[in-house]
């Protein structure tokens, strides 16, 4: 899942070298923390948060196949 978020984020941003994803494993849920360059924040969030919402939908569906909940945190 880390790879999924990393590859999507890299495809969206202007500075892919600054994309970092950290996976934090909890008991019930895995949190994926995404960091991008400050200037790229808008690219991963999108207008009205639509891009972030779409990425979360993809992540949620992928997690469903693994019977595990994943959440995406976009960090500034």
């Amino acid at each position: 899942m880390k790879q999924l978020i990393e590859d999507i984020a890299k495809a969206l941003v202007d500075i892919p070298e600054e994309v970092v994803v950290k996976e934090v494993l909890g008991e019930q849920v895995t949190v994926l923390e995404l960091r991008v360059a400050a200037s790229d924040l808008g690219k991963v969030i999108g207008k009205q948060g639509r891009t972030a919402r779409s990425i979360r939908t993809i992540l949620g569906a992928a997690g469903m196949k693994l019977n595990r909940r994943f959440t995406l945190e976009i960090l500034e």
Binding site: I8, A11, L12, K43, G46, R50, T51, R53, S54, I55, T57, I58, A61, M64, K65
Partner: peptide, 21 residues
């Protein structure tokens, strides 16, 4: 079926992210 579930939520998400890409 998964792609079309929930009023094609996943289909539309893939579409949106692709267009942003």
């Amino acid at each position: 079926d998964l792609i079309l579930a929930n009023r094609a939520e996943l289909l539309l998400a893939l579409e949106h992210v692709t267009m942003e890409m």
